[in-house]
Simulated scan of single mutants.
Amino acid sequence: MAEARFSQDDFMCPVCLDLLKDPVTIPCGHSFCMGCITDSWDQQDQMRVYSCPQCRRIFNPTPDLAKNIMLAKVVDKLKKPPGHSYAGPGEVQCDVCAGRKYKAVKSCLVCLESYCQTHFDHHEDFHSCKRHKVTETTGQLHEKICCQHDKLLELFCKTDQQFICVLCLKYEHKNHDTTSAAVHRTEKQNQLKETQRRFQQRIQQREKDLQQLREAVKSHKRSAQTAVEESERIFTELIRSIEKMRSKVTQRIRDQEKDAASRAEEQLERLEQEISDLRRRDAELEQLSQTQDHIHLLQSFQCLSTPPESTEVPNILFSSLFSFDSMRESVRQLRDKLKDFWKKELRNISDRGPTTTSYNIPISSLWIQTQLINGFICPTGTE
C-alpha cells in the first residue's frame, strides 16, 4: 500500500494563507486558525449571520469552537521535518545553519565541520565522487587534527605519550613505540573499567556515609527535642516549687508579723491603761496638794501615794519586731547560690559542644527542692 504524502499546502488556513495555528474544524468540515475564524465571526456580529469563509454555509447561533488536537499534531510535524530539532544546551550545533541552529547529526573529519541532517545530505551529495571521512557528532573537531601536518590524529605514540598523525610517524616519531588509537583505546578500556569500579565503590561508601549522617542528624534532632521537652518540664517544676516556697515564706513572715503585732497590741493596751491611771493619780495628788484641810490631806495621802501596778514589757517582744533581717539575708544567700549554680552548670553544658548525642541537663528538681527547704523555708533554723 502506497504511503500517503502531504505537503504544507494541504494544511494552509484559507483566511491567513499560512500554516494552521491552533486549528479548529467547524460543522461544515473546513478548518481554520482559531484566531482567524473568531475574528471573521466578530465582524459579522452586527448582521447576526455567521458563515464559513470558504463555503459560505450559515450558522446561527455560532457553533462552539474547540481545538482539533489530531490536526494540530500533524501541522506540528510539518513544521519540524524528521531528523531536525534545534540544538539545546550542551549539544553540538550545525556549523552551516544560519540563525537558530539545528542539532548536528554527523561531523566531517576532513571539512572539520558538524552538520544537521539537511546540510549533511548536501555535504554527501557534494562529495559523492570522493567520500570524506565522517564520524558521529563530536565537538572540538580541531583538537582531532595534527596542528603540524593538518592530518587526522589516528595513532598514539607511547614513547612521547601523545596522539600523532601518519606524517608524524614518518618523521618526528620515527622508530617510536606507536599503536593505533583503537588499540590504545582497548588498553585504556581495562584501566577505565578499573577506575570506574573504584569510583562505584567510593560512591557506595559515600552513599552509606550519607545515609549514616542523615540518620545521625535525625537522631540529633530527636535528642535535642527530647532535651528541650525535659528541660521545659524541669523548669516548670522548678518554677512551681519556687512559687510554692515563696508563698510559704511570705505566709511565714505574715504569721510572725501577726503574732508579734498581736502580743505588742496587748502590751500597748496595758501600757496605755497604766499611763492613764498614773495621770489620774497625779491629778488627784495635785488637787490634794491644794487643799487646806489638814486632816483630809493626811487621810488621803496614804492611799494616793501608792503607785498602780506596773506593766513590764519583755525584751523578747522588742527583738521579735526586728527579726526579719536574718530572713532577708537568707533569701539573698539562696539567690546568690542559685545564680552561681546556674552559671556553673550552663558552662558545663556549653563545654560539651554540639557533638553530644544526648542532652541530659544536670538539673535535679529534688535537689533544688531540698536546697529550698533547708536554706529557704527555715532560714532561722526553726520550723
Rank of each mutant, 00 (worst) to 15 (best):
Q46R: 06
V217A: 08
R328V: 11
D9Y: 04
D293H: 07
A264D: 04
L71S: 14
M70Y: 12
P63G: 11
Q54Y: 11
D10Y: 04
H123S: 07
C108E: 04
T291N: 04
K79V: 02
D150L: 03
S326K: 14
D39M: 05
A283F: 12
Q204S: 13
R280K: 13
G90A: 07
G88C: 09
E383T: 09
S319D: 14
A227Y: 05
A66F: 08
C303I: 13
G29Q: 11
E172H: 02
P362I: 10
F120Y: 15
W342D: 02
R254D: 12
W41M: 06
I58D: 12
Q191Y: 07
A182E: 15
I368P: 00
I203D: 11
A261Y: 06
P379L: 01
D95P: 02
V24K: 02
E143H: 09
P82Q: 04
F376P: 00
D209H: 10
K218N: 11
R48G: 12
K258I: 05
S358T: 15
G83D: 07
E237L: 06
P362K: 13
C55G: 15
C108H: 06
D351S: 09
E143R: 10
S323W: 04
G35P: 00
E265L: 05
M1P: 04
Q162S: 08
Q44Y: 00
E143M: 00
A104C: 10
S247T: 14
L65P: 07
P81A: 01
K344L: 12
Q292D: 12
R100M: 03
K344D: 14
R347P: 00
L65Y: 05
I295S: 11
H132T: 04
L278K: 13
L155F: 14
L78K: 07
G99Y: 11
F235V: 09
T178E: 05
C97H: 07
S289M: 08
T195A: 13
I239L: 13
G139E: 12
D277N: 10
Q201C: 06
N374Y: 06
L20F: 15
V331L: 13
S51C: 08
V183Q: 15
C33Y: 06
C147S: 15
E286D: 14
C13A: 07
Q302I: 12
W342G: 00
Q8N: 02
R263A: 13
K221V: 14
H132Q: 03
T311V: 13
D10P: 02
S85N: 03
P63W: 11
C108A: 08
H84S: 14
S128R: 14
T306K: 13
I164E: 01
M1F: 07
S128D: 12
I234K: 14
G99Q: 10
T306N: 07
H132P: 06
E237N: 05
E230S: 13
G99E: 10
E154N: 03
Q54T: 15
S276V: 02
G88S: 11
K80D: 01
E266Y: 06
Y115P: 00
V166M: 05
D10K: 05
C52F: 09
I368E: 08
S7F: 11
V105I: 15
A224C: 15
Q251H: 01
L71T: 13
I58T: 14
H119W: 05
Q371W: 08
I253P: 01
E215F: 05
S364N: 09
T178W: 06
A227C: 10
K218C: 08
A216F: 02
L346C: 11
A261D: 13
F163D: 06
L141K: 01
R214V: 04
Q161E: 15
E257D: 13
Q196V: 07
K106D: 00
S276W: 03
